[in-house]
Every structure is written in structure tokens, then in C-alpha cells.
Lab assay of single mutants.
Amino acid sequence: TEKEKEVKRLAKERGLSPDQVRELAQRAGFSPDQAKQIADEFA
């Protein structure tokens, strides 16, 4: 999704850790499970 792409782009730009990616995703409105899946891509 657009929102997911945006979260991943920000995460890459900022060099976020997987935990930070998960927090960012949840703040963007993703469920905890979705946020974990997104964060796992950065693990």
C-alpha cells in the first residue's frame, strides 16, 4: 500500500532499527501484527 511504502521509505532514510520501524508503522495506523511484518523486513 501507499502508506506501507511511505513507512518503509522513512525507515530506510532514517536508518531505523526494526523496533523503531514497528513503532513508526503503528503510529501510521497499522495493526501490531502488520507493523511487526513490516519491521521484520528490516531485521
Score class of each variant (00 low, 15 high):
T1S: 14
T1D: 13
T1H: 14
E2L: 13
E2S: 12
E2P: 08
E2T: 11
K3Q: 10
K3Y: 08
K3N: 08
K3C: 12
K3F: 09
E4L: 15
E4I: 15
E4R: 15
E4S: 14
E4K: 15
E4Q: 12
E4V: 15
K5N: 14
K5E: 14
K5D: 14
K5Y: 08
K5R: 13
K5I: 11
K5S: 11
E6C: 15
E6P: 01
E6S: 06
E6W: 15
E6T: 08
E6I: 12
E6Q: 10
E6G: 06
E6H: 10
V7H: 02
V7I: 15
V7A: 02
V7Q: 00
K8D: 05
K8L: 10
K8S: 03
K8R: 12
K8C: 10
K8E: 05
K8Y: 03
K8F: 03
K8I: 15
K8Q: 05
R9P: 00
R9G: 05
R9A: 06
R9K: 08
R9N: 09
R9F: 03
L10W: 03
L10I: 15
L10F: 04
A11E: 04
A11Q: 02
A11K: 00
A11H: 01
A11D: 03
A11T: 00
A11G: 15
A11Y: 01
K12R: 12
K12N: 10
K12E: 13
K12C: 13
K12Q: 11
K12A: 10
K12L: 06
K12P: 04
K12I: 06
K12H: 12
K12Y: 08
E13G: 05
E13P: 00
E13D: 07
E13S: 07
E13Q: 11
R14M: 15
R14I: 13
R14C: 15
R14T: 11
R14F: 12
R14G: 14
G15S: 08
G15I: 03
G15T: 04
G15F: 06
G15P: 00
G15W: 04
G15K: 09
G15D: 07
G15R: 08
L16G: 02
L16D: 02
L16A: 04
S17T: 15
S17K: 09
S17G: 08
S17P: 05
S17F: 06
S17L: 09
S17A: 09
S17W: 06
P18I: 12
P18D: 05
P18K: 11
P18G: 10
P18V: 12
D19W: 04
D19C: 11
D19G: 08
D19K: 11
Q20R: 05
Q20V: 04
Q20F: 04
Q20T: 03
Q20S: 05
Q20W: 05
Q20H: 06
V21K: 00
V21P: 00
V21A: 05
V21L: 11
V21Y: 01
V21S: 01
R22D: 07
R22C: 09
R22S: 08
R22V: 15
R22K: 13
R22G: 06
R22T: 09
R22L: 14
R22A: 13
E23F: 02
E23W: 03
E23H: 07
E23T: 05
E23N: 07
L24T: 04
L24W: 02
L24N: 03
L24V: 07
L24R: 02
A25M: 04
A25G: 03
A25S: 03
A25T: 00
A25P: 01
A25R: 00
Q26G: 07
Q26I: 15
Q26F: 05
Q26S: 10
Q26W: 02
Q26R: 11
Q26Y: 04
Q26T: 13
R27C: 11
R27G: 09
R27T: 13
R27F: 08
R27Q: 15
A28L: 15
A28V: 14
A28S: 12
A28Y: 15
A28F: 15
A28C: 13
A28Q: 10
A28D: 04
G29M: 00
G29L: 00
G29H: 01
G29Q: 01
G29P: 00
G29A: 01
G29K: 00
G29Y: 00
G29V: 00
F30I: 05
F30E: 01
F30S: 01
F30M: 06
F30V: 03
F30C: 03
F30G: 01
F30H: 01
F30Q: 01
S31G: 10
S31A: 08
S31I: 02
S31R: 05
S31C: 05
P32V: 07
P32N: 06
P32I: 06
P32A: 08
P32L: 05
P32C: 09
P32W: 06
P32F: 05
D33K: 11
D33E: 15
D33Q: 14
D33R: 04
D33L: 08
D33Y: 03
D33P: 06
D33T: 13
Q34M: 12
Q34K: 15
Q34A: 13
Q34P: 01
Q34L: 08
A35Y: 00
A35R: 00
A35I: 04
A35H: 01
A35G: 02
K36H: 09
K36Y: 09
K36A: 13
Q37C: 09
Q37I: 13
Q37R: 15
Q37M: 12
Q37H: 11
Q37W: 05
I38E: 01
I38W: 03
I38G: 01
I38L: 09
I38S: 00
A39W: 02
A39T: 03
A39Y: 03
A39F: 02
A39E: 03
D40G: 05
D40C: 11
D40L: 12
D40M: 10
D40S: 08
E41F: 05
E41H: 05
E41T: 06
E41L: 06
E41M: 08
E41P: 02
E41I: 06
E41W: 07
F42L: 12
F42T: 05
F42I: 13
F42W: 12
F42N: 03
F42E: 03
F42R: 03
F42Q: 03
A43K: 10
A43I: 12
A43G: 08
A43R: 11
